[in-house]
């Protein structure tokens, strides 16, 4: 199962668009991309999960780690387009209260 990542700039944000299924096997790719962007100096990273059809708790662990890393660098990590089963996982684990979640990338704050 392959995961597709596409990174682009949107104003002050780096938007990482993810497509596929996130689990123990594929979620390390998210970690690598986010950490690479953070190392390059990006401080506002949005993970667009609109095309993510599946996400398990191990993937949430990766997202939490990325969130903590950005915060340590006075940055922000937000989620975009979470829906269906991935949103259910966030709600059941209570992590929907930890992450800032936007419906679309257009809603990302510009300030």
């Amino acid at each position: 199962m392959e995961l597709a990542l596409e990174t682009r700039s949107q104003g002050t944000w780096t938007v990482v668009r993810v497509a596929g299924e996130l689990d123990m096997h594929t979620s390390p790719q998210i970690r690598e991309e986010v950490l690479a962007r953070a190392t390059d100096g990006d401080r506002r990273i949005a993970l667009d999960l609109t095309e993510v059809s599946f996400m398990d708790s191990s993937s949430l662990g990766v997202l939490v780690m990325c969130l903590k890393r950005l915060r340590e660098q006075d940055g922000r990590l937000v989620l975009v387009g979470v829906q269906g089963s991935p949103m259910k996982v966030l709600v059941l684990t209570g992590l929907d209260r930890v992450f800032d979640i936007f419906d679309t990338a257009a809603e990302l704050p510009s300030d």
């Binding site: 708790s57 191990s58 949430l60 662990g61 996982v89 059941l92 684990t93």
Partner: peptide, 11 residues
């Protein structure tokens, strides 16, 4: 880590 295991089982 323990948090991840607990989160998985609770889920």
């Amino acid at each position: 880590d323990a948090d991840s295991v607990e989160r998985r089982r609770a889920l």
